[in-house]
Amino acid sequence: MDKKIVNAYLALAVVCIVWGTTYFAMRIGVATFPAFLFSGIRQVTAGTLMMALLLLAGQKLTISRRDITRQFVAGTLMIALGNGVVGWAERYIPSGLAALIVSVMPVYVVLIGYVSGADRKAVNAYLIMGLLLGCVGVSLIFRDNLADLANPNYLYGILAAFFACFCWAAGTVYTKHKPSEAKTLVNVAFQLTSGGVVLLMGSVFLDDYSQLATISPDSLWALLYLIIFGSLASYGCFLYALKHLPSGLASIYAYVNPFIALLLGYFFLNEKLTWITALALTVTLGGVYFVNRSYRPKKAGAYPAGNTDDSAH
């Protein structure tokens, strides 16, 4: 087998594992760190480091004002309202549950694209099956957490995770139909940085800074892990895998991540894992599969789970 293909499979394995651990790391990080400040520092640092690495590699950060505006909008939707709000939600709900809720995102992408008129693709049996399974998966998620919903913070956490997933999907649709002429990594650097700045601004009004006196070393290690591996290294691996493998295969991380997150939460954070959770995961990922499958006749590999943005992680 070609060495590049072997390396691409190894890079894909890194993506599947590392992106699956980001929910676990966020849960540890926000446990003692103001949530929006935590995510803001992570994204601004990652974006700034990416810009520095691009400059050191001899690349120019060429981007128009129009594209800066577009990356700001995308960064606000996916990085700030998507990733940042998921981080806040994980203060109140298990990391595995957050990952399970976010796995519904491709279904939202289809619905938002259709309602907004941005992508009214032909309805087919695969799409209908995928949307129905997605709805059943969401119902099972709520069914599995009925007892805990009596706790207001838990309820707010779940609603926040669904809201974050919706914003993430809206950002995905926006990015797809408002493309930038700049290079991919330049777009990502500006997107991470702009989203991080929005998070830092929101932190001033939404975070409790008294927590700064009790930040644990574990939270700081989680922050460092997410900056280096969650944002920088794994994204580079994903781009390499996407370049040398079919996009459909490269997007397999969308199916692996929830399993990794649920297992890590179960074994290391004592998070609940029931048969209904397993059923909800199976049904939801089945829905994602059928939604993705519905796009293949139109353009091979061009479907929501193959989105190349690292906003969720």
Rank of each mutant, 00 (worst) to 15 (best):
M1D: 13
A8N: 03
Y9W: 15
L10C: 10
T21S: 15
F24C: 01
I28S: 06
I28G: 01
G40S: 01
T45D: 08
L53H: 09
L54F: 03
L56G: 12
G58I: 14
F72R: 08
M78A: 01
I79Y: 03
A80R: 07
G82T: 07
R91M: 14
R91P: 04
R91T: 13
Y92W: 15
M105A: 13
P106T: 01
Y114K: 14
Y114E: 10
A118W: 01
I128T: 05
I128V: 15
M129K: 12
G137V: 06
S139I: 07
L140S: 05
L140R: 05
I141G: 08
D148N: 13
A164I: 03
G171Q: 10
T172A: 10
H177G: 01
H177F: 15
P179D: 03
N187R: 09
T193K: 09
S194W: 03
G196S: 04
L199G: 00
L200N: 04
G202I: 07
Y209T: 11
T214P: 02
P217F: 04
L223W: 08
L226Q: 07
I228R: 02
L232A: 07
C237D: 02
C237G: 03
Y240L: 12
Y240P: 07
K243T: 14
G265E: 11
N270F: 14
L273E: 01
T282S: 14
T284H: 08
K298S: 14
Y303N: 11
